[in-house]
Design a binder for these strands. Structure first.
Length: 572
DNA sequence: GCCGTTTTCGGCCCGACTGTTTTCAGTCG
């Protein structure tokens, strides 16, 4: 069955080629908007079609694109794309990926030098032919050569957690300037996306040129892309691009809104402003030439009669409509979390003892902490045998009887075996308070078999939480093929829950499926999977991801009291 | 190619910076 991402790829290519051909830019945008809608969808388009859903209900999908989606799903081909690839070299769209080369320049490269793709371009640049084209010069040619290498080497985005460390260092450095008034890291970082493409730092200050100089000279700069009075860009040796923007204090809110994005959210907000006769830009809200607001983000939203929208929601995925109808979610916060339902100790592959983990949980003000060590199938993590589990259960009982500062829940991270059985006998499972059940083997099973495997595991009445539901590791390992929609539906039917694993490299469930779980009535456990006391702090990453998924406290399992939890874990 | 709390036609976000220019187009976010 064709994946949403494949459909999106078809449309991205069509948009690229249309752009190179010089088509109506709004038509190009229509394709790109559709790509955004499709990739942000939790449901499989192919299945929506099979269920005879009306795709034109999706934003940005009209009559034409609906037809084209159906064509792709039905035939695996798109005549429109093939037609474009007949007129233009199929590899030409790759050239658009080079920074600084937009559709016009790519078109010029094709027409004058017959460039068909990245290989041709590399050769032409080496031979000094690129600089001979009007509008191109030596600098452009040198930059192309560098960027082709970079493009071949990596296209990776930076995990949020990694970006945070860099952002903290940079903001501390910039704050040394005495005249700096405000500083915020905006962009996708502020929206808490699981990975960020670059960092956007916004400041207001009274000596912009000096700050710009110290910014472009900061430690770790590989090259300076641009430097101006209000905007400068650098690339760090890590490959991360950082943009610094300076705005006047009275514009700070408008600028913060603008640079936080997302672009789609901004466009939607500006359009509403336009309809009300207002111009909204990064300098404020204007009625004619008169400034009517923009010192705070609240003012920007208020200018178009909307309440404040949290950055995590600003993706143009219905938040504006919800704001208009005054039904924005009251997002879960770290302070709502009462405990952690997934962590390891030295009994399996953790670095701290049960006692140390419990004390650390108590220090965080938690009411409960579940110890979920691996089971014996996972030998590499020193998984526990049934006998060892029994011993651990007894130890936890003794501890709970003796100490009251935090309740230690008896649990295990139980391996889901290839055939869907659980890796502990039922009589042991029934002695646990609940289970986290996870896949750690046979990632390569096809989608149907992997889904069936997990569904079978869920059939066991001792199954409570599905751990890291897709197994993906950001930038390292893709998700295993699995039908998450079916799993979420099945979880709802059986009274099971899904984990949002808060580990910075996992963040598994993603935002889109958190929201689907919420809509399906499946509560999500935000768990750190801590292998040491420090890892308990990953909770804030999971909470951020949950907020992007529109989750409210009641949608999250571990905001509930211990008594409520015990009830929720009792299936049937 | 999409869309409609004026609209089924006529709009569709907008400002900064760079390189290659002699006044600005192209690209980016």
């Amino acid at each position: 069955m064709i994946q949403n991402s494949e459909i999106a790829d078809y449309f991205t290519k069509v948009a690229d080629f249309l752009e190179i051909e010089g088509a109506n830019p709004f038509r190009v945008r229509a394709y790109r908007n559709a790509v955004r809608t499709i990739t942000g969808l939790a449901h499989s388009i192919a299945e929506l079609i099979a269920a005879e859903s009306d795709l034109t209900q999706l934003s940005g999908i009209g009559k034409e694109l609906n037809e084209k989606i159906r064509e792709i799903v039905r035939t695996g081909r798109l005549a429109k794309l093939e037609e474009l690839e007949n007129r233009l070299p199929p590899g030409l769209h790759q050239v658009l990926k080079i920074p600084g080369l937009g559709p016009r320049k790519v078109k010029a490269l094709y027409h004058t030098l017959k460039i068909q793709g990245l290989e041709d371009l590399k050769k032409a640049a080496r031979e000094g032919r690129v600089r001979t084209i009007e509008g191109f010069g030596q600098k452009t040619e040198e930059k192309i050569l560098k960027d082709i290498q970079r493009l071949i080497h990596s296209e990776k985005r930076t995990p949020w957690f990694t970006a945070e460390a860099i952002a903290r260092t940079l903001t501390e450095y910039l704050k040394q300037d005495q005249l700096l008034a405000d500083i915020t890291v905006a962009g996708s970082f502020r929206r808490r996306k699981e990975t960020v493409g670059d960092l956007d730092i916004l400041i207001s200050c009274r000596n912009a040129p000096a700050v710009m100089n110290s910014f472009t000279a900061c430690e770790g700069v590989e090259r300076v892309i641009s430097q101006g009075d209000t905007r400068s860009s650098i690339v760090l040796r890590s490959g991360l691009q950082v943009d610094l923007r300076v705005v006047p204090r009275e514009s700070y809110g408008a600028a913060l809104h603008y640079f936080t994005g997302s672009q789609a959210h901004n466009i939607a907000i500006r359009r509403i402003g336009q309809q009300k006769g207002l111009k909204i830009n990064e300098y404020g809200v204007f009625s004619g030439s008169r400034r009517t607001g923009g010192q705070t983000e609240e003012e920007v939203y208020a200018s178009i009669d909307l309440p404040y929208i949290e950055p995590e929601l600003r993706e143009d995925r219905g938040e504006i409509q919800a704001a208009r109808e005054r039904r924005l979610p009251h997002l879960v916060a770290s302070t709502d979390i009462r405990g952690d339902l997934h962590c390891h100790t030295t009994d399996s592959d953790g670095r701290n003892s049960l006692d140390e983990m419990a004390k650390a949980a108590a220090a965080r003000g938690y009411a409960y902490l579940a110890i979920t060590n691996h089971t014996h199938h996972l030998k590499i993590a020193r998984g526990l045998s049934p006998a060892a589990v029994k011993k651990l259960i007894a130890e936890i009982d003794r501890r709970n009887a003796r100490l009251q500062e935090v309740v230690v829940l008896k649990s295990m991270e139980v391996d889901i075996l290839s055939d869907g059985r659980l890796d502990l006998p039922d009589h042991i499972l029934s002695e646990l308070d609940f289970t986290v059940c996870s896949i750690h083997s046979d990632f390569q099973l096809d989608r149907d078999r992997q889904t069936e495997r997990i569904l079978r595991a869920m059939d066991n009445p001792r199954f409570n939480i599905l751990g890291h539901p897709t197994g993906r590791l950001l930038n390292q390992r893709p998700a295993y093929a699995v039908d998450l929609e079916r799993l979420i539906t099945a979880a709802a039917e059986r009274g099971c829950f899904l984990e949002l694993n808060a580990h910075p490299d996992r963040l598994d469930l993603d935002d889109v499926h958190c929201r689907l779980a919420k809509e399906t009535g499946v509560k999500v456990a935000i768990s750190t999977d801590a292998h040491s006391v420090d890892h308990l702090d990953y909770m804030r990453l999971g909470v951020a991801q949950a907020r992007r998924g529109w989750l409210e406290p009641s949608d999250v399992l571990n905001t509930h009291t211990l008594a409520q939890l015990q009830k929720l874990f009792r299936r049937s």
